[in-house]
């Protein structure tokens, strides 16, 4: 196979799988709580800054993972209690409140680290030969980890008892509560879990991104578009949404450039929002 084609395909897979990890947390929270957490991107951003912080302390890169999970898990806990739980009955206000939260987190990080771009060194340097094409090792590892993570979570969601409970609550909140599923605790844990997933994605992606306070904005929009295109609430929808958004951006970027890629994604999202707001796989 032509090595350039190989690289282009790997780039698309990388884009789609990492995007799916970011969206997964958002989608689980939305599916269960009906809450569109517009601050989800900021948790990715905080995860990335954790990686930067750890590296600045000359600690091993992997130490960033527990730190990010701790920071974002705690933040998620506080946010769920103060902003999300009191507003279950007011979905539009939740949207606004989490939007305000996203600004708050962005500005807070900016006040600490400034507006500048930070670089995180890649923990794994060099490249690997994939079918005759050189591909950066870390990027390849990240793709594999992302796919494994999404697959593992889907498997867990389908097979585990907690997964079944979550699905029960998604289907019918009152009924789930009445058969003894602890709905409030489950909702809290799910929200925290979504935040942790975002933080993990942030740590993993940090070496490949210009780490800056507005990083989350890009992710939340793309994630929202994935949910719009895929349809809110199903995993098939999530993966196909990530495929469409990540794939289109990556392919158009490969043939033209990033600006066109981004513009195309925006146009697709607007068309979906307007003409097919329930996405490709609507929740029944």
């Amino acid at each position: 196979m032509d090595p350039i084609l190989t690289i282009n395909i790997l780039n698309v897979v990388y884009e789609v799988s990492t995007l799916a990890v970011v969206v997964l947390g958002l989608a689980v929270v939305f599916g269960l709580l009906g809450v569109m957490n517009l601050a989800h991107g900021e948790f990715v951003m905080i995860g990335a800054y954790c990686a930067f912080f750890i590296q600045a302390q000359n600690l091993p890169f992997l130490a960033a993972i527990p730190l990010a999970l701790l920071v974002c898990g705690f933040l998620g806990l506080v946010v769920e209690r103060l902003l999300v739980r009191p507003l279950y009955a007011r979905p539009f206000d939740t949207l606004l409140a989490t939007w305000g939260l996203s600004m708050l987190l962005r500005e807070a990080v900016e006040a600490v680290y400034g507006r500048g771009f930070r670089s995180v060194a890649t923990p794994l340097t060099g490249s690997v030969d994939v079918l005759g094409a050189d591909y950066p090792s870390y990027r390849l590892l990240l793709t594999v980890v992302s796919i494994a993570l999404v697959a593992g979570l889907v498997w867990w969601f389908v097979r585990s008892a907690t997964g079944r409970r979550i699905r029960a609550v998604v289907n019918n909140r009152e009924l789930a509560g009445s058969v003894g599923i602890p709905v409030t605790a489950l909702a809290r844990n799910t929200f925290v879990f979504g935040c942790c997933l975002a933080a993990l994605a942030g740590v993993m992606l940090a070496p490949l991104l210009p780490v800056n306070p507005t990083l989350g904005l890009d992710f939340i929009l793309k994630s929202f578009f994935v949910l719009v295109v895929g349809g809110l609430g199903s995993l098939v929808g999530l993966i196909s949404g990530a495929g469409v958004i990540g794939g289109v951006e990556s392919v158009v970027s490969a043939f033209l450039d990033r600006t066109y890629g981004y513009t195309t994604v925006l146009i697709i999202a607007i068309l979906f929002l307007w003409l097919r707001p329930n996405g490709l796989f609507p929740r029944t």
């Binding site: 090595p3 690289i7 490949l208 507005t214 990083l215 970027s253 490969a254 450039d257 990033r258 890629g261």
Partner: peptide, 21 residues
Amino acid sequence: EEYLPLGAPNKFEDAVTRIKA
């Protein structure tokens, strides 16, 4: 010859792939 927006969080894998080609 190509130009990327200034001040945006740019990614370069496609540009690098084009250069490689």
